[in-house]
């Protein structure tokens, strides 16, 4: 067992866990933040996506011992970011979700895309979001919502 100081959504957290514990389980069980989901445990589905130092990261395969002092942002904190808010609003307007289980990861992936590529093309969307899978098949509305969030952000209007 080791003690780690983590920065999560701008707050300092301290946990004492087995060093090999994936960040996902530290978030969900030790910090009781269940917004980040467990879908596969092998980085295949994207439901566990968080941001670490601004990079979309699959928390189910990253041991907490490798995080260091890099800041972590989860779905619970993404609304603090204007891009995050725009994406969430677009998701609601477009009625993207069905069961919703994959959507935390989809939103975190979409935010990473839009923060890096202001006007993503269809190819950009397919490549960046192609690793986030949705059993309900909401892909068409995800694409629409990313485009409308992009328009909203680029029109100069804040959320």
């Amino acid at each position: 067992m080791e003690t780690y100081k983590l920065t999560v959504n701008g707050q300092q957290k301290e946990v004492t866990v087995d060093p090999g514990t994936p960040l996902l389980w530290v978030l969900r069980e030790d910090l009781k933040m269940t917004g980040t989901k467990y879908g596969c445990g092998i980085a295949a589905c994207g439901a566990c996506t968080v941001h670490v130092a601004g990079i979309a990261t699959r928390s189910c395969v990253v041991p907490v011992s490798l995080v260091g002092d890099r800041p972590i942002v989860t779905i619970e904190g993404i609304a603090q970011d204007p891009v995050g808010r725009a994406v969430q609003d677009a998701w609601v307007s477009a009625d993207v979700v069905q069961c919703g289980y994959c959507q935390s990861g989809q939103i975190m992936g979409a935010v990473a895309l839009l923060k890096s590529t202001q006007k993503p093309t269809d190819t950009n969307i397919e490549e960046s979001m192609g690793g986030n899978i949705c059993r309900c098949g909401t892909y068409v509305r995800i694409r629409q919502a990313i485009k409308s969030a992009s328009q909203q952000l680029n029109s100069g209007g804040a959320a």
Partner: peptide, 20 residues
């Protein structure tokens, strides 16, 4: 307006696995 959209987009909706 749907009643389930927002909680599914901000991580607040609890699924079975999230119960504690």
């Amino acid at each position: 307006r749907r009643l389930d959209s927002r909680p599914k987009c901000d991580g607040s909706l609890k699924f079975g696995l999230d119960l504690d």
